[in-house]
């Protein structure tokens, strides 16, 4: 058995609870994740799954109620902002909205150079050189440095955001829905760019996405989340080829592909997604699960390891195989 590389950034049994209108919202419930140098972890889920909260926890932009965050052997869960400075240099994030994540009043050069100036990593001529290098790395011309974000397209702005994230030479890159707001042909450019960057720098990468098809091209390992818990975690090929959790299977079948419907039967979910404020008892997915049994509403399934570095949180993993619900009528609860 080959020696597994050591994860550089990890969340261990993390729990995050918000208080909304006096009621608790369990954004994350006993979630663990590991990001390893040279490999890409994809976290997939729909709205309310907690995937963005997990990204913020790992970025230390969100405090946790339970669990801890480890970075390079150090417990960074409770460190002050000042103590987190070195951390901030080594873990960087690319945001979803290329129109909101860049200050429209600054030039591209200033934006990319900001982390370097703030962390005193470079100044003057060195800074200008580094900005030029970074622009080149992301495929933008050197003249871009003098222009403002408003003069660029969404895809180009995202390249700027990536260049900014790469400026302090981070060990970990977290991409939070980094391509969702872009055109399809541009998405492909950015996905390839992220792949290239990782291949060249061997950094660890985490990709948050709702799009399984996109994730397929980027990820080594995939974690599927539902209402704040991890329901399935497996190597990318395994999870796409042979999903064990009914939700993963439903997600796969719901993803539109160019092959159209074909022979693929759609797994129709009953009901709509429950409100995170009103977590169903037992397995949170049981209200929509086509194979739910009495046990599923009574007990919470734990994330248990299965063969081949997989884990599933389900009492009946792998049992789904093509069962569908005949009626289209669905009932979604209001928020």
């Amino acid at each position: 058995m080959t020696v597994q590389p050591v994860p550089i950034l990890s969340a261990e049994h993390v729990g995050v609870t918000f208080s909304l209108r006096g009621r608790p919202l369990h954004a994350l419930d006993d979630v663990s994740a590991e990001i390893t140098p040279g490999r890409t972890l994809a976290v997939v889920g729909e709205s309310g799954s907690g995937k963005s909260t997990l990204a913020r926890v790992l970025m230390r932009a969100q405090d946790v109620r339970h669990g801890r965050v480890m970075f390079d052997g150090t417990d960074v869960t409770a460190l002050s902002e000042r103590a987190l400075r070195p951390f901030r240099r080594r873990v960087q994030m690319v945001f979803q909205d290329p129109y909101a994540s860049l200050d429209p009043r600054m030039t591209v050069g200033q934006i990319i150079g900001e982390p370097l100036r703030a962390q005193r990593l470079a100044s003057g001529e060195r800074l200008r050189e580094r900005v030029g290098d970074l622009l080149r790395m992301v495929g933008l011309p050197a003249e871009a440095a003098a222009r403002r974000p408003g003069q660029f397209s969404g895809g180009q702005r995202q390249r700027v955001a990536i260049a900014r994230a790469l400026a302090p030479d981070p060990d970990v890159l977290i991409a939070d829905e980094a391509v969702s707001a872009l055109d399809v042909s541009i998405q492909a450019q950015i996905v390839n760019l992220l792949r290239e960057v990782q291949r060249a720098r061997h950094n660890a990468m985490m990709v948050i996405s709702h799009d399984l098809a996109l994730v397929y091209h980027l990820a080594d390992h995939v974690m599927v989340m539902y209402l704040g818990r991890v329901v399935e975690s497996a190597p990318c090929d395994d999870i796409i080829g042979n999903p064990q959790h009914p939700y993963t299977a439903a997600l796969l079948s719901a993803t539109p592909t160019l092959d159209g419907r074909g022979e693929r039967e759609r797994i129709v979910l009953r009901e709509g997604p429950p409100s995170p404020l009103n977590r169903p008892s037992g397995c949170a997915f049981h209200t929509r699960c086509p194979i739910a049994q009495p046990r599923c509403s009574a007990e919470v399934p734990q994330l248990l390891p299965a063969a081949g570095s997989r884990s599933v949180a389900c009492f009946y993993p792998g049992k789904l195989a093509g069962r569908t619900m005949a009626d289209l009528t669905s009932q979604e609860e209001p928020r």
């Binding site: 397209s153 895809g155 180009q156 055109d183 399809v184 042909s185 541009i186 998405q187 492909a188 450019q189 996905v191 390839n192 792949r195 799009d211 098809a213 996109l214 397929y216 091209h217 990318c236 090929d237 796409i240 796969l252 592909t257 160019l258 092959d259």
Partner: peptide
Amino acid sequence: RGLIAAAPRFDARRSVLRPIPGAP
């Protein structure tokens, strides 16, 4: 052809996406 090549899909081989260079 470019749109189809750039669209992510579940392949047996995890091929690299072939984007269309530039922007509309």
